[in-house]
């Protein structure tokens, strides 16, 4: 029964959400008993930039470089997901299966090589 095991995951999810909420609730209670100051002001609630007013608005744009890395990550993630079923049945199979997988991986390794060749892997800060 597969689903039965995942009921346990659900229980764990619920407990995992409850777990950090406990200290947060404690923190909330401290604010309720007037023990700690709760007088936020403009300076307190401004963002931290080493003690002076923020020089610029928050940068909200990435370099396209990051996108390439993320794409490479997605591609290799998908590849690995394809390879795991093979890995599980590999011990029962003959050598011939290795060649099929080798083609699969070599095609992708060529992608990596291509990226390397075109300096897509050069990380520029």
């Amino acid at each position: 029964m597969i689903v039965e095991q995942y009921v346990r995951v659900l229980i764990l999810v619920i407990l995992a959400i409850a777990f950090p909420l406990l200290p947060l609730a404690g923190s909330y209670l401290f604010s309720k008993i007037n023990y700690r100051p709760a007088n936020s002001n403009e300076i307190k609630s401004s963002i931290y930039e080493c003690g002076v007013e923020a020089a610029d608005i928050t940068w909200r744009q990435f370099n396209a470089k990051y996108f390439l890395y993320a794409l490479g990550f997605v591609i290799f993630d998908v590849e690995v997901i394809f390879l795991f079923p093979w890995a599980v049945i590999h011990t029962e199979q003959a050598f011939s299966i290795l060649i099929k997988v080798a083609i699969f991986v070599i095609v992708l390794a060529f992608g990596l090589f291509y990226a390397w060749r075109w300096r897509a892997l050069e990380w520029q800060q």
Partner: peptide, 19 residues
């Protein structure tokens, strides 16, 4: 974009500001 490193930054070795 502009960023203030310092005056209160762990690696400016004191109150020194680099914009």
């Amino acid at each position: 974009y502009e960023l203030n490193i310092g005056p209160q930054h762990p690696s400016t070795h004191g109150v020194f500001r680099i914009k």
